[in-house]
Design a binder for these strands. Structure first.
Lengths: 147, 147
DNA sequence: TGATATAGCACCAGATGAGTGCTATATATT
DNA sequence: AATATATAGCACTCATCTGGTGCTATATCA
């Protein structure tokens, strides 16, 4: 089982980098990519997604770049992951009846004896991820503060 | 983020089915597949994996089938998932330096400011999944009993 | 006007998961 | 002994998704 994608990992790295800058200072996608040896074009893509999601603010043009747009303690890992790669789900709906794996119809539940309990576990998983903030991830000292 | 694969979902369904049978009674892969409208060949594959992992006991030949080989309360979701689809990881190592995404070398840590904290969160995720047993998933009444 | 940097696409390639098929082996029935 | 049933163990195909690239447009500073 693999929870987060690499792109989300790159996103966390970028957020951490921006968080360590002096207040309001900008960093370009190229700088960040270079520092952590991430392909530049890819980091550009990630930054665009972070900007679109509202986590960073962008300044276009020469001497432009990105800066944090939110307090890291206000962003949960659940929210971050959801915005970047879709909803957190423990398992896909198993049914072959509907092509839509998001839909959890009555029919599915008849065909899947573990449907409800899995959902409940999933909700607990989401709650867990909601209790982890980016602040904890960026500043190791805070890790595990709540538990 | 998607936690478990469909095959693991099928596996949970099969485990639940077997758990509801009278003590020691067998069920064939075909029966289970038919009941939950899962492709027969696929369910056969899943059952083989369950057998190989030691979760079910197989009886070959005519009138053969599968029965549970472990108490569901002794199997955690973490263990189940790990046996069927590899280790539970929150995120892959980000580094481009080593091809091995499992390895977490010193070099990686220099290149990834969130390496350590992510790992700690991952460990908490694993702990969470270790506290969920298959018994809870099969018997909804138990769900959330611990928390 | 030119250099820099983001915005917004569309696209390709490799990996992984979902699903199928075939052959061998074990066992119960006839 | 022969046949039917059911698992064991492969190998293989196909679809999807992720990782990664490229191109064009737009905004800004010098």
């Amino acid at each position: 089982m693999m929870g987060l994608t690499k792109k989300t990992g790159y996103g966390l790295t970028a957020m951490a980098h921006l968080a360590h800058l002096p207040q309001g200072q900008l960093a370009t996608a190229r700088e960040i990519a270079h520092q952590y040896e991430i392909p530049q074009a890819l980091m550009m893509n990630v930054m665009k997604r972070l900007a679109a999601a509202g986590y960073v603010e962008s300044v276009r043009g020469a001497h432009g770049g990105y800066r944090l747009a939110k307090h890291l303690s206000d962003v949960t890992l659940e929210e971050f992951s959801t915005r970047l790669e879709g909803p957190v789900r423990l398992a896909a709906c198993i049914s072959h009846v509907t092509g839509d794996s998001t839909a959890c119809t009555q029919a599915n539940q008849m065909l899947c004896p573990v449907h409800d309990p899995v959902h409940r576990v999933q909700r607990r998983l989401q709650d867990f991820l909601k209790r982890v903030t980016l602040a904890e991830i960026v500043d190791p000292a805070l890790t595990g503060a709540r538990e």
